[in-house]
């Protein structure tokens, strides 16, 4: 099972970034086989529709579960269409977020929890 975590960096020690559409990287971990890969978020520098580009990339990489913070309406509809389960409430490092997910501490997101352009407010 492939689990994707939105983050500032590329590896399991990176800080997570709770802003899905505008994060720098997606770290993709498959705990069953112990693989760690990452993809640059194509939405991070989009002038608009960042969440759409980000969700498209995730959907195309065969991810089963996404761990993040906030997801807007457009990205949510793509992720739902692609059958990707979303869990929100990540904090700390990527590997910490993964452990929290595995111990059932991250809640399942059943509807969008961010308004559009929320990621633009990043300082």
């Amino acid at each position: 099972m492939k689990i994707c975590i939105s983050a500032f960096g590329k590896d399991p020690d990176s800080e997570v970034d709770p802003q899905f559409g505008r994060c720098n990287y997606f770290v993709i971990i498959d705990p069953d086989i112990g693989s760690v890969t990452s993809i640059k978020n194509p939405g991070s520098e989009a002038s608009g529709g960042a969440g759409i580009r980000a969700a498209e990339a995730i959907a195309g990489s065969g991810v089963d579960t996404l761990l993040t913070g906030s997801v807007g309406l457009n990205s949510f509809s793509i992720l739902s269409e692609a059958g990707i389960e979303i869990h929100s409430g990540i904090r700390g490092t990527v590997s910490f977020a993964l452990r929290e997910y595995q111990s059932g501490k991250l809640s399942l997101l059943e509807s969008p929890n961010a308004s559009t352009h929320i990621g633009m407010r990043k300082s």
Partner: peptide
């Protein structure tokens, strides 16, 4: 699409009219 109004999913293309 430079405005990201179209998203290519593995099994379909999704369209976001407002963009």
């Amino acid at each position: 699409c430079k405005y990201n109004a179209l998203a290519a999913l593995p099994n379909k293309i999704m369209f976001f009219p407002s963009l």
